[in-house]
């Protein structure tokens, strides 16, 4: 059966053409394609890894920023509180000082008033004494005419007063 007998001519041409096809494709065809596809595969893997890493970094960064913001908020609160306290303190101190100053002035004024009062009292007393002396003189002048006894008594009384003033 001729179907089952391989023909030499065909074998020869098959060897030639298949050989050429194989050599050309093995050199310029398949390796280029496969290399490219595998390169792409590794590239995709690499990119995926890089994206994953970037994502991780991003989430880390955002967490960090969140903590920073939270810390800043806390700090702000603290500073505000301190400032408020400080303010209160300053106000309190200022009012205290004002009070003290006012008190001092008041005291001074009081003292002056007191002194002036005393002066006035003394003045009044002096005048009263003078008046009473004058009155007494007048009375005594009248009476002295009547008796020398009365004169004597007035002297004694004057002495008494004077001694009292001296004290």
């Amino acid at each position: 059966m001729s179907l089952l007998v391989p023909d030499t001519g065909l074998l020869f041409w098959m060897l030639l053409s298949f050989g050429i096809v194989f050599v050309v494709l093995a050199k310029y065809g398949f390796p280029a394609i496969i290399k490219m596809v595998e390169g792409r595969k590794t590239y995709i893997d690499k990119s995926l890894n890089a994206a994953k890493k970037a994502n991780e970094q991003l989430s880390e960064l955002s967490a960090k920023s969140q903590t920073i913001v939270a810390e800043a908020n806390k700090e702000q609160g603290r500073i505000l509180k301190v400032a408020m306290q400080e303010r209160d303190k300053i106000i309190a101190r200022a009012s205290e000082q004002a009070e003290i100053a006012a008190q001092k002035e008041l005291d001074e004024v009081k003292e002056k008033i007191k002194l002036e009062k005393e002066e006035a009292i003394r003045d009044i007393r002096r005048q009263v004494a003078n008046l009473s002396v004058e009155i007494a003189e007048k009375i005594i002048r009248k009476k002295l005419k009547e008796s020398d006894d009365q004169m004597e008594m007035i002297d004694r009384m004057l002495d008494e007063v004077l001694s009292k003033d001296k004290n």
Partner: peptide, 17 residues
């Protein structure tokens, strides 16, 4: 036919490459 097919194959694969 082998020549034609080989040529076609070369054109296709080298074209893709």
């Amino acid at each position: 036919a082998i020549f034609i097919n080989s040529f076609l194959l070369l054109v296709i694969i080298l074209g893709v490459a």
